[in-house]
Nucleic acid binder design. Structure first.
Length: 271
DNA sequence: AGGAAAACCTGCGTGC
DNA sequence: TGCACGCAGGTTTTCC
């Protein structure tokens, strides 16, 4: 899925368009996402105005007067603003029709995403309640991460992908951030020295910021709210580059499996 | 507890 | 051309 940069790029694309507008109709063509799309959405949202469009971790939070629409894009989800004339395609599961005539259209071939309604404070939702800090915030720093890594014997890559430790770091940016910090992804988390932890925190922030600036990464499905692909895939150092020369030292990038996911790294640069 | 693996899906590339 | 297999931006659930 979309990791944090793709969700943030999507948020930025839809925020100004949605904010202040009322929802005219909700069309659910297929409610079978990760959890069923609530069947009361039409009654609940009709006439309600969007107050805010925020992001927490990889969740988009569309705030209304009486509650929040919680949207996750899963592995293959996209959210686009289209005109009413736009043909509905396969996997276009949900439409929110806006009062200006445009449509916010949710597409998700694999249906790993979700669209949920929550009327209490968003932080109280079970999916959001135990998330770690935002990686681009000051609460995600070396002192914090050092505490989180202590006593954890799992590989550092798996730990930085744990959303309880820090949110938003998915499979691509985990490999990229570890390359940038010159750390072997297989290292047990608790063995990292303080200066390595500092480098890793800086690398995660820089990698995510660069990816947001590039409009995210498009491997296959991802497009932003206007239908444009991201460009970060053109500048990866490790991810997807198995066998290709390291951009720093020219030795071949290696691919391994960690936690059933592909990991890419340079054994020469990353120790 | 932490950690590993299975589960949820569709689509696409590869190799026979 | 067809088919089986493995793999894909995630996260919850289950089991040890």
């Amino acid at each position: 899925m979309p990791e944090l940069p793709e969700v943030e790029t999507t948020r930025r694309g839809i925020a100004d368009i949605l904010t202040g507008q009322a929802i005219e109709t909700v069309t659910v063509r297929d409610p079978r996402l990760r959890w069923p799309v609530p069947d009361h959405l039409q009654q609940t949202l009709q006439g309600q105005r969007v107050r805010s469009v925020e992001r927490r971790a990889k969740y988009l939070l569309i705030g209304f007067e009486h509650g929040t629409l919680i949207v996750h894009l899963g592995m293959s989800g996209t959210l686009r603003v289209v005109t009413a004339a736009r043909a509905v395609e396969k996997h276009d599961h949900v439409d929110l029709a806006l009062e200006d005539g445009r449509i916010l259209r949710y597409r998700d071939p694999r249906r790993f995403g979700c669209i949920l309604w929550h009327e209490q404070a968003t932080a109280t939702h079970p999916l959001l309640a135990s998330l770690g800090p935002e990686p681009l915030s000051d609460t995600f720093n070396a002192d914090y991460l050092k505490l989180q890594l202590a006593r954890r014997q799992a590989a550092i890559k798996l730990v930085i992908m744990d959303q309880h430790v820090v949110v938003g770091v998915g499979n691509i940016y985990a490999s990229e951030a570890l390359f940038r910090a010159r750390i072997d992804p297989q290292k047990p988390a608790a063995t990292l020295k303080k200066r390595e932890i500092t480098a890793l925190v800086d690398a995660i922030k820089a990698t995510l910021a660069d990816a947001i600036a590039a409009g995210g990464t498009t491997l296959r499905d991802y497009v932003d709210s206007s239908g444009n692909t991201g460009y970060f895939q053109l500048q990866t150092y490790a991810y997807g580059r198995a066998g290709e020369p390291c951009r720093v030292c020219n030795s071949p990038i290696v691919e391994i499996r960690q936690g059933q996911r592909a990991t890419f790294f340079c054994p020469n640069c990353q120790k």
